[in-house]
Amino acid sequence: MQASTNRLVVGGKPLRSRLFLGTGRYPSPTVMRQALDASGAHVITFAIRRVNLDGVEDDSVLRHLADRDLVFLPNTSGAADAEEAVRIARLAREAGLGDWIKVEISAHPRSLMPDPLETLRATERLVAEGFVALPYTSDDPMLCKRLEEAGAAAVMPGGSPIGTGLGLLNPYNLGWIAEEAKVPVIIDAGLGSAADAAQAMELGADGILVNTPVARARDPVAMARAMMLAIEAGRLSRLAGRIPRKRYATASSAPEGRLFAAPDAAAGGRHAGAVEGGGR
């Protein structure tokens, strides 16, 4: 986790928001725009795909976002290895919308788990070509360290597989990653609701990236706002410092001045009240 500056800075760019929003799978472009507004997101993600040669309509997602001040983070989804990811990144850069790239190399069709070796290779090559590389990675602290050393502008470990909504499956690892990282940590993938976003921030993440939990929520616009609030709440909570977990209860109300005598701890509380309280 970065020091407690108020602004997240990635690749030298100060960002207005710690929420990175995906642009896929919304019910309509209008809902996407409204969700984007509600989320306050500054960084938005895209995919690169072939143009439909038979369609005459301009279906580029950018058409709906042309009027906004945003940082564009195209992903390399669809790449199976470093080579393909680099090709997609070069195509994305040629679009003239910046040199950020989310390295996403998912080789397994059912888990969409990122391939760690290819992700590291692609990150090295993209950094060498001057990209601001943000690799989506598994929640492995050592791998995140290697990606950081390779020049990643941020590391983006997944909470759980993409689109599952299973939340943070390994908070222990994610906490480690946040503690060790010298670059921003963006928890990407698998979040299900605002609670997961808050938890990610409490673990020490610098931001989160969500798409499906917003786009496929019953009310995407409301969920976008919930995510924004959860990030703020989670981050404040982290900075405020949570209390340690304890085995036994500690009364919130001070014992001094209580009307009746405290139960006897040795008696385990059972019947103590009856003895002391005198009942009949």
Partner: peptide, 10 residues
């Protein structure tokens, strides 16, 4: 030849 563009994605 490939012609590509940006589409919605996460």
């Amino acid at each position: 030849i490939e012609f590509v563009h940006f589409v919605g994605g996460g």
